[in-house]
């Protein structure tokens, strides 16, 4: 086996190359920070998305955002503001329909998903220089995040954290058992819509990093992996945030040397860890059951 020398034959280790570049280039430092800011959202709100099983809803919100980005671009406004407006609008629309009719939400989400994208594509087609913008909206480009947008992302993080800390009990109750929350006098409709708006804000945070098509993966995978091992909401949020930070940073580092798209690398990394973790947690659970049965049999015998 000649593996120890293969990397060296290229001249530099890709990881070493990444760390050297990180010390040198501010765009890379900005990218790393953007990934870390995004992971806070994906950990805290992603946990709600996973336990409340609203990943499809989050997917609908994420895709409809293209409409807002396209319109903003066409009218010369910051696309991120357009994204935020579109995300919140579609979150409220989906939420209100679910609260009013209950049965129709999947159809509506599917429609909003497609309509939002169609609006976006029309606007972008009528805006000059659209192709690169379209690609970075769809798949993200963490290396192109301008430094001033870090402030925007930090602001969104602050909004998420403060809201969740202030209303943790109500958000937990509405996520856990809507009917019981209603019986305790919690304004369920308000907190349900608030939760969806927080999802919308997180989607905008994550679009910076992985683009709107891949948002759903970063929103669900870290929290789902955390859920394999910890069994409290707070614990899931913490572990998912750390995992999110790891996936974005490691994805960025792995993609830098071979010049791969960073967003896609992050998602593949997260996806692989998720698959391994799902299998591992199942094996561990089965072993636990077997050991418990053995202990019970020994105690009985």
């Amino acid at each position: 086996m000649d593996t120890p020398t293969t990397l060296v034959t290229r001249g530099t280790d890709p990881m070493q190359e990444f760390f050297q570049a990180l010390g040198q280039y501010t765009f890379l430092q900005t990218a790393l920070l953007a990934g870390l800011f995004a992971s806070l959202g994906c950990g805290v709100i992603g946990t709600f998305v996973v336990v409340k099983r609203i990943a499809f809803m989050a997917g609908g919100i994420a895709h409809s955002v293209l409409g807002g980005m396209g319109a903003a671009l066409y009218f010369g406004v910051d696309p991120l503001l357009g994204a935020l407006a579109a995300a919140v609008l579609s979150a409220l629309l989906i939420g209100l329909v679910r609260l009013a009719w209950n049965a129709q939400e999947d159809t509506l989400i599917g429609a909003l998903w497609a309509i939002g994208m169609a609006i976006g594509i029309l606007f972008i087609a009528k805006t000059t220089g659209y192709t690169t913008d379209l690609m970075s909206f769809l798949f993200g480009n963490i290396l192109l995040v301008p430094r001033r947008e870090l402030w925007f992302m930090a602001g969104l993080d602050l909004v998420l954290l403060v809201t969740v800390m202030l209303f943790y009990r109500q958000l937990l109750a509405v996520t856990f058992d809507e009917e019981f929350a209603r019986l305790r006098g919690v304004p369920v409709a308000f907190f349900y819509l608030l939760l969806l708006c927080l999802v919308a804000v997180t989607v905008v945070l994550l679009i910076q990093v992985v683009g709107l098509i891949l948002v759903i993966a970063l929103l669900t995978l870290p929290a789902a992996i955390a859920g394999h091992y910890v069994h409290s909401l707070g614990g899931m949020m913490l572990i998912a945030t750390l995992l999110g930070g790891f996936f974005t940073s490691a994805g960025l580092a792995l993609s830098y040397g071979p010049d791969l798209p960073a967003g896609a690398t992050m998602i593949l990394l997260a996806g692989s860890v998720y698959v391994v973790s799902a299998v591992l947690s199942r094996v561990l659970a089965r072993r636990r059951v077997r050991r418990r049965a053995l202990v019970a049999r020994e105690a009985g015998g």
Partner: peptide, 30 residues
């Protein structure tokens, strides 16, 4: 029937605490 998913990551004490909603201030923790 429980109107919540059985695999929800929550302890018994936390479940019982949700019964205290509606007491005390709206903001913050238990």
């Amino acid at each position: 029937f429980p109107t919540f998913p059985r695999d929800f990551p929550i302890s018994v004490e936390q479940v019982v605490l949700t019964g205290r909603l509606g007491f005390g201030p709206m903001l913050g923790w238990y």
